[in-house]
Amino acid sequence: MVEEFHGYAAFDKKSVLKYYSYTPKPLGDEDIEVEITHCGICGSDLHTMRSDWRPTLYPAILGHEIVGNVLEIGSKVVDFKIGNRVGIGCQVYSCGNCDECNSGYEQLCAKKVFTYNDMWKDAEGVPTEYQAQGGYADKIRAHSSFVFHIPTEISSAEACPLLCAGLSTFAPLKRHNVGPKSKVGIAGIGGLGHLAIQWAAKMKAEVTAISHSSQKRDEAIKLGATHFLDILDPNDVEKFTHSQDIILSTSCSSNTDWSKYMNFIKNHGTLILIGLPEAPLQIPVFAFMRFVKVEGSLTGGRQDIKDMLTFAAKHNVRPWIQIVPMKDVNEGIKSVLNGEARYRVVLEN
C-alpha cells in the first residue's frame, strides 16, 4: 500500500493553495516522522509560493516553522521517543561530516535538504525522486539531527515562529557576541524585527528600533527597544548618525535607501542582512571607506537552534501570534500578504 501524506500546496505562482496528497520519502533508520499540530506562516513561504527567488518545484507544500508530536522513529534514533513534542525548522538534512557541518554551519552543507522546495538526496548528494514537502500538512519526515525538543515553558503555537524568524534573528546576534556594551539597531518592526528587538534587549544591548513610521514606536518600546529611530525624521537621522555597532536589517523592500542605513553604523560596524530584497542592493562605494562591513545571514545551525530555544525559555522571548485553523490557510496567507498580521500567523491542525 502506497503511503500518503496530505497538505495544502501551491500549484503555480498565482493560485490559492489546494489540498494535495503526496508520497513521502521512506522512513530511514535515522529519520523521525512527526504528526504536525502547528505550523507558522513565514515570509519565505510567500516568496516561494510566487517563485520570487528561484523557480519553485510545484506542487509545493510550504511551511518550515513546524511543531508536532513524534509519530514514528527509525531504528537508530536514540534521543527521541514516540509522543515527544518536537520542532522542525528550515532544514531536514545535512551530511554531518563536511567542513560546514563540523563548524556549525549545516545550512551551508552541499548535501543539505531544505524543508520544502527541495529534493531529498542520496548518500552521494544526488537528488532522489522524493520531493521535500513542508508543514502546511498533517505529517512530515526529517532526519533526527534536525528535529528538536521544545522546552516545556514554550507553547506549541509560540514555538513555531522561533524555528525560523527566531533563529534567523538570534543566530547573527549570537555570532557577533552581542552583550551589555553593544549598540544594536533593528531595521523593520515586523515578524522578524519584533523578535530581534527582544533578543537584543534580553542580551542587555542598547537597542534602537528603526522604522519608516513612528506608528510602531510604542510597540517597539514594549518589546524592549531603548530608542526609536524614524528614518523619515531629519532630526532622528542626524541624532543617530554613526551610532550603531550593528544594524540587523529585516527589510525585504527593494526601495530601501541602504546609504542611510550605512550612515547609522559606527566606523568598523556591520550591516547584517536577514531580509532578502528581490532587487540588487545599491550601496555607494564610499559607505565602505569607514571599514563598515555588510554580511548576510542564512537561518542558523543545529547548535544555534538549541541555544535559541534555551534562551527563549529562560528569558521569556515569545513571538506575538495569531492562530488560524490549518484548513483556513489561504485566509492566513492573505492576512500576511496584506500586512495585517501582528506579527506572525500560526496554523493549527
Rank of each mutant, 00 (worst) to 15 (best):
I189Q: 08
G43E: 07
P284Y: 14
A142N: 04
I210A: 10
V184E: 07
F288Q: 02
V184S: 10
Y116H: 01
A225V: 02
L46A: 08
R54A: 14
S259I: 09
S15F: 08
P280I: 07
A313R: 01
T208P: 13
F240P: 01
H194K: 00
P280H: 04
S51C: 11
A205L: 06
N267G: 13
G332I: 04
D79K: 02
N267W: 15
G190T: 02
Y130G: 01
A142V: 03
D138N: 10
F311E: 00
G7I: 01
T56M: 07
G185H: 08
G43C: 09
D257Q: 13
H315C: 03
L195C: 05
N316K: 11
A132T: 03
G193A: 08
F288K: 01
V237F: 13
L27C: 12
D12E: 04
L271G: 07
D304P: 09
V34F: 13
M203L: 12
Q131M: 12
H227E: 08
E295V: 12
R175A: 15
I321K: 01
T241D: 13
S103Q: 13
M308R: 01
A165I: 01
V292I: 15
W199N: 00
I221A: 05
C160A: 09
Y93V: 10
E65H: 00
T310C: 11
N97S: 15
K306E: 12
A279K: 11
H315G: 05
S156C: 05
A205C: 11
M326L: 14
K18P: 08
S243V: 08
A60R: 00
L192A: 05
G40W: 03
E238N: 13
L347I: 03
K216N: 15
I246F: 11
Y261D: 01
Y105W: 14
N84S: 12
D328N: 13
A159S: 05
L298C: 14
N255H: 14
D236Q: 02
I323R: 07
G188H: 09
H194Q: 09
D230C: 09
G83C: 08
I323P: 05
S254I: 03
I32W: 02
D31K: 03
G339K: 00
L62Y: 08
E331M: 13
E4F: 09
A225K: 01
